[in-house]
Amino acid sequence: MPFKSTDENITGGKDFPDLYYEEDNLVSLTIDRQKVRVEKGMTILEAARWMGIKIPTLCYHEGLTPWGGCRLCVVEVIKRGRSKLEASCTYPVAEGIQVKTNSEKVQKTRRMIVELLISSCPNSRTLQDLASGMGITEIRFKMEDNDCILCGLCVRMCKEQMMSGGIGFINRGAKREVSTPFHKSSEICRGCGACMYICPVVTLQCRGRREPGDLCNACINVCPTDFGF
């Protein structure tokens, strides 16, 4: 008998178990053909991850406000018969919506986004891994050599978790970048390094003083807060 792609085959005849919450605080929706009831106020990304569905992200972090900038987490949301691509990290779950996290359209869009990002920032291992995972073997745009993908994680980390706000975005459009005000070293930056810790694309680099061929060892005797990050 051929495999029938119905809910029964996937969940063994039962709907996905509900989260244990108050009844009136739940909304039911369908994610990848599985009916599920989740708490109001959750985002689609949270609901999908709780169900074990993988959605790639770059600008999302559990501890920070969702931002919806990288658009890598796009999913197809079908509401009142109309299908739209939405960023799952910011879209709140709603009664009766249908979500496709891995449709052809979604895959195509994600691949294009990774291709766009990697052509600007080819040195990032995260992006390279994503590209390989998606089977992107060719970049059709002119290669550039930037580092930052402007996901804004560092900016939010600095402000929301480190309570500082030493860095922010400056300029707009293609000239946008992350920096301190007026490119000068910021008085409120404590040099905590949280921005570097959270950056998804740049591997931590040593910024100590170093002559070619020298072993730096700057970290041995220096207090971390003395670094001029």
């Binding site: 658009r71 975005f169 300029n171 707009r172 459009g173 293609a174 000239k175 946008r176």
Partner: peptide
């Protein structure tokens, strides 16, 4: 539009840049 895009989201910022190219 490339110059006036705020640059927050990738499709608009990077996509328009590549389209212009």
């Amino acid at each position: 539009l490339r110059d006036e895009s705020c640059g927050k989201c990738v499709p608009c910022r990077e996509g328009l840049k590549r389209m212009v190219q």
